[in-house]
Structure formats: structure tokens, C-alpha cells
Design a protein around this nucleic acid. Structure first.
Length: 408
RNA sequence: GGGUAGGUGGCCGAGUGGCUAAAGGCGGCAGACUGUAAAUCUGUUCUCAUUCGAGUACGAAGGUUCGAAUCCUUCCCUGCCCA
């Protein structure tokens, strides 16, 4: 059997490793319990977590045991890494709700049954009961403040201010690793590269207490060529929850990525064989659109299932190539006609306010049934529904199907 | 605890009594060009009413003034230096 290490490597997941040689040998030698942490700061995962789950899935396929740590305890603090401001704290109820939602999404990637079944743990279970003095004496004494301050993740914060509260985040994450090491024999922590400092904190902690088989690995963050984080949309993050980001929008996001990201996205976010990916990524110019279609389809399938992926693909074909049915595009029902175009735009959330709806119309960004409309007083009436529905379009890529509620 | 500099629209950052819904940049959106790409150029970017206009907004609450983001008072928060 191939070593997962090579898989992770050839697919470009790996950014940094604490002990490259040893980690590779470890993978070959035994089934390694490893953990990735997820902060339950929202009730859905987003693309940022996607990469972590992909890696965990690859690892599990090769016989290693995933431990998904949900940071119910640490979320009460908020990781200061890379943030310029202290994060707002979440209530206990929020966190519990979020944990439950996250669990469902994780199940799409990782099996909780079988030989190397994954487990989910919540660090609230051990962190909340810690005694302060005890913790500081036993764990805190093993951390050098000088070293921590030198860490990249704190440097930025040193300029704007950093509280002790936030600094202890690293200690807690390190303690998590130690706890999992002791309880489940967890030897490896994985995470996004922004977690590097926290990860080596844990690796060092375990080594300081006399063990030498703790390791850390970080993945590359998904970024565009300019280094912008991927997964941002005009509405904020690209969520994995279909209620927050519809499968159609999700599909379209990947369909529209820039050429230079195709290779990365295919490798990191799909399970397509590497040979096929290399072929696809080599397509030039206009042809690379084929690769994007495949990427969008595969990624959507992973998150939302085959059926939703097909629907999204079909809707997109219908809209952009004029073939196939319009049935599956996002639809909004209208109570009554006539309705002003401005109102319809706000109703469909195409624009958040009437003012913005008007600017859109004025700038020629709105069309109805393929006809550009520049009259801000336009009233949508029955004649726009001659085919039974009306297509409202913003810009080139955002479509909504309007339908009347009571067709009589 | 003492001293000092600050808190401005999604972010960064000008503005120090009326011409300020507040320069500039970033980000976002739209238009042109394209391949549902990138880059570039143009427009736009608080809310309601697009006719005039009105309402909210410069950490919070009060006050001075015909008029305040700009002045005064109290409070909250943050940086830096000293202890």
C-alpha cells in the first residue's frame, strides 16, 4: 500500500512538518491516531475547514484514525492567531448548537464506523474542569513567554495589544494534544498553516514531559495566486451548509475560479486520480473551462451529494449555454403582480436595499427575461410571465427564477 | 496607580465649529473587454424617498452654539512610556 505521506505530498496539502522523516516512517509503520481541531464559532463549516476534512479523509482511507476535536472549550476564548482584534465570545448554548451542526457535516468526509473509526471529542470536557493554579504550575511552567512572544502569530498582536486571556489559547491547545496523546495515543496534530505555532506548542509540550513521538503537520491554505484566501463570496464565507450557501451558488463559486487555481483546487478538494488532474490542469486557454466544470461538479458532489451536484450543473448549463431545464435554478415565489422591479430585486436578495437596487438598474446590471432594463420604475406584470416564469438576472452570473405564488 | 496618544463608514486612514454623508486607499458590486478566467479601464458603494428632500452616522451619555465628527463635562475602551 502506498504511504499517505506521498498522497498528501503529491496533492500539495503539506506546508510544514515538525519531523518529515519520522512522520513518513510512522505512517508506514502503524495506524496513527491523529487529530484536527475545529472551532465551533459558527453553525456551519466553511471552505477553510474543507481542506482539513479532505486530509482527514485521505488519512482514514490509508488506515489512520481521525480524532475530530471540536473546540467547545477554547471557543469561549477565541484564537488570537492572525486576528487583529479579540474575538467576541460565544455563549455556551451557541457553542452546543454549533457543535451539533458541525458533527453532521463532518460525517460526509469521515467514517465513524469500522476498524479505524473516527471519533469526535469536545475539549470543553476536559478544559472546563481544570484548576487554574494546578494548570499553570504543571503546564504553564513548561512554556517560555519569550519564545511565545517571538512566534509569528503573536507578533502582530503585540502591536495592537494582547491579553493574557488570549495568550493562554496556545497553552490550552497544547494541553488538548497532550490529553489526546495520553487518552487515545494521538501522535499527530494537523491543521491549517495558521495553526503552526499552536501545533508546535503541543508537540513540544509532549516532548518536554519525556515522550518523543509527537508530531505536527500543517496544510497549505487555499489561496488565489495573489494570496487572497479562497472561499469568500459577496455574502461572506462560502458555507458548506446548503441553507447558507445554496448548492447552485456553491457550484458557481468553483466554476468561476481563476485559471491558475484549477490545479490546486482539483488536487486538494476532489478525490480524482492525480493523473486525470494533471491532464485537466494542463488544458490551455478556453479549454480550461472543461476542467473547471469538472472541479465544480466534483466538489459540489462531495459536499451536497450527487443529485444536488447534477441539479446545479444542469441549472448552470441552462443559464449559460441555453440547454437543459431551468427547473433547478434558484427560485423565488412572488405574492402578487404587478410588483416594482426594485422591490423584486430586494425580495430576492439580489441587492440588500432599494437604493442599491436602483444603482444596479441605472448601471445596466439588471435584466429580466434577457432584456436589459434601465427604467427604475419598471413594474413587473403578467406579461413578463408569458412562459410561466420570469428570469431575473443581475450582472452576468446571478440568476433567479421568479414565479407567481397563485397561478390561476 | 502616574504620564501620554488615541477611539471616524466592511477594513485602513484623512478631517479639528458651517462648503462634511465625511478626502484617499483597500475590499465589494456593476459596465466595457473576455473564456461564466485573470489583468486593465470606467462607474458605483449608509437607509428611505430618487422631484425637491428626509432620517440615521464619526466610542457612550449629557452640555455649549443659529450650527459639532470637530468645543466642554462625565463615563467606557485601547496603544505606548513609567511604577
Amino acid at each position: 500500500m502506498k504511504n499517505v505521506f506521498d498522497i498528501l505530498d503529491e496533492r500539495g496539502y503539506i506546508e510544514q512538518l515538525t519531523h518529515p522523516q519520522e512522520i513518513k516512517q510512522l505512517f508506514a509503520k502503524e495506524s496513527v491516531p491523529f487529530y484536527i481541531g475545529i472551532d465551533p464559532t459558527a453553525d456551519s463549516l466553511h471552505v477553510g475547514h474543507f481542506v482539513s476534512l479532505m486530509v482527514a479523509s485521505h488519512m482514514q482511507r490509508y488506515g489512520h484514525k481521525p480524532i475530530i476535536l471540536v473546540g467547545g472549550g477554547t471557543a469561549t476564548i477565541g484564537d488570537p492567531s492572525g486576528k487583529t482584534d479579540m474575538r467576541k465570545m460565544l455563549s455556551k448554548e451557541d457553542i452546543e448548537h454549533n457543535v451539533a451542526c458541525i458533527k453532521k457535516q463532518v460525517e460526509k468526509f469521515i467514517s465513524f464506523e469500522g476498524e479505524n473509526a473516527a471519533i469526535i471529542v469536545n475539549n470543553a470536557d476536559w478544559l472546563l474542569d481544570l484548576k487554574f493554579v494546578e494548570f499553570v504550575r504543571e503546564i504553564g511552567s513548561l512554556f517560555s513567554v519569550n519564545k511565545m512572544l517571538a512566534a509569528e502569530c503573536y507578533k502582530q498582536r503585540l502591536e495592537t495589544g494582547l491579553t493574557f486571556f488570549e495568550m493562554s489559547y496556545m497553552l490550552m491547545q497544547s494541553y488538548d494534544f497532550l490529553y489526546l496523546y495520553n487518552k487515545y495515543g494521538c501522535k499527530l496534530q494537523m491543521g491549517g498553516n495558521d495553526q503552526w505555532s499552536n501545533i508546535i506548542g503541543g508537540v513540544d509540550l509532549i516532548r518536554k514531559i519525556g515522550k518523543d513521538d509527537s508530531f505536527g503537520l500543517t496544510f497549505k491554505l487555499l489561496t488565489t495566486k495573489e494570496g487572497k484566501k479562497m472561499g469568500k463570496t459577496e455574502k461572506g464565507a462560502l458555507w458548506l451548509d446548503p441553507e447558507k450557501t445554496s448548492p447552485y451558488e456553491f457550484y458557481q463559486y468553483w466554476r468561476n475560479i481563476e485559471d491558475s487555481s484549477v490545479d490546486n483546487v482539483l488536487k486538494m478538494l476532489t478525490f480524482l486520480p492525480i493523473e486525470q488532474i494533471n491532464e485537466l490542469a494542463n488544458l490551455k486557454d478556453e479549454q480550461i473551462n472543461e476542467a473547471k466544470k469538472i472541479a465544480a461538479y466534483e466538489i459540489t458532489k462531495l459536499i451536497h451529494g450527487e443529485e444536488e451536484a447534477k441539479k446545479a450543473e444542469e441549472a448552470s448549463n441552462a443559464l449559460f449555454n441555453g440547454q437543459g431545464s431551468l427547473e433547478n435554478m434558484p427560485t423565488v415565489e412572488l405574492d402578487s403582480t404587478p410588483l416594482s422591479l426594485v422591490d423584486a430585486i430586494v425580495l430576492t436578495n439580489i441587492a440588500p436595499s432599494k437604493g442599491q437596487a436602483r444603482t444596479l438598474i441605472n448601471q445596466g446590471g439588471i435584466s429580466l427575461n434577457d432584456e436589459k432594463i434601465t427604467d427604475i420604475n419598471y413594474q413587473i406584470s403578467d406579461k413578463d410571465f408569458s412562459t410561466g416564469y420570469a428570469i431575473l438576472k443581475k450582472g452576468k452570473k446571478i440568476f433567479y427564477k421568479l414565479q407567481k405564488k397563485n397561478m390561476d
